[in-house]
């Protein structure tokens, strides 16, 4: 038995090797000229690919942890720097907004200035009346700029007041809401005339007869009759009308067009002085 097996071994080996060579040859011949992966290729690729992706994932995870750790070392410093940068940008944004608001305001003033036929000069408010009893403010224009007593002071929204007196470097303006200010006005729609006087924070329209039709919301403009303000400048809107049983005139409250608490820049209309003539 043992003798027989010894004799048959080379034959079996030969058969196995030749079968393998034939199979390999068949496989090689079958793959030649193909451009697509065969099923075994795909199978192997899928298995190896899954393993590859798993290993790569693990490696990346480890590397990420390492990088995160390394990054943490400088993050506090960078955080502080970024916070500083945010603060700086916030300050810049505030500056830009302020510049934009100033630009819009001055552009409006400029447009309005071009509409007024008389020569004008813009002025900045530099100080307000510290007392409770008067409504005046100071501007940075003076007699050296041609600003003189009685000149009207206006803004885009409407009438502000008139120059009280001009010093060498500044001038004082009596606001239209001061009780000592009186402006001749007319109601734009009905052309009813009257005189408005300041009450401290608004106006009161005087000398309008009871038979006139006045309604809340009516716009008041300067009549030009007083000789101070040019005709047609907006002054305020009627806020309430009371017709009392007795008396000839209506009791009319007027809301100013100008927000006097927010005034920053004004226009002085330069009427008949040496500079303008």
């Amino acid at each position: 038995m043992r003798k027989r097996s010894k004799r048959t071994r080379p034959i079996r080996q030969f058969l196995v090797i030749s079968t393998c060579i034939v199979l390999f040859g068949v496989l090689a011949l079958s793959f030649m000229g193909r451009k697509e992966l065969t099923l075994p290729h795909r199978l192997i690729f899928d298995i190896l690919g899954t393993a590859q992706s798993g290993v790569t994932g693990i490696i990346n995870y480890v590397l990420d942890i390492r990088n995160d750790y390394i990054d943490l070392i400088g993050v506090k410093k960078e955080n502080a720097r970024l916070r500083e940068e945010i603060k700086r940008h916030q300050a810049l944004t505030v500056d830009y907004r302020e510049a934009l608001a100033t630009n819009v305001r001055l552009r409006k003033l400029l447009d309005f200035k071009e509409q007024i036929p008389q020569p004008t000069i813009t002025a900045r408010i530099i100080g307000r009346d510290p007392s409770e009893w008067f409504k005046t403010f100071s501007i940075d224009r003076s007699s050296s700029d041609g600003v003189g007593k009685g000149m009207p002071v206006v803004t885009v929204e409407g009438v502000v007041g008139q120059i009280l007196d001009g010093g060498n470097h500044r001038a004082k303006v009596l606001q239209a809401i001061d009780p000592n200010s009186a402006i001749e006005v007319l109601i734009q729609d009905t052309r009813t005339q009257g005189i408005i006087k300041g009450t401290g924070d608004s106006y009161r329209l005087h000398y309008v007869l009871r038979n006139n039709e006045i309604n809340p919301g009516d716009l008041l403009i300067t009549s030009g009759l007083g000789g101070v303000f040019p005709k047609g400048l907006p002054v305020g809107r009627v806020s309430s009308v009371v017709s009392k049983r007795r008396g000839m005139f209506l009791d009319i409250e007027v809301e100013p067009m100008v927000d006097f608490s927010k005034l920053e820049n004004v226009i002085v209309i330069m009427k008949s002085n040496q500079l303008t003539e």
Binding site: G127, P130, S131, F134, T136
Partner: peptide, 8 residues
């Protein structure tokens, strides 16, 4: 001073 800054 007040005369300068306030009133008329």
């Amino acid at each position: 001073m007040m005369d300068i800054f306030s009133g008329f």
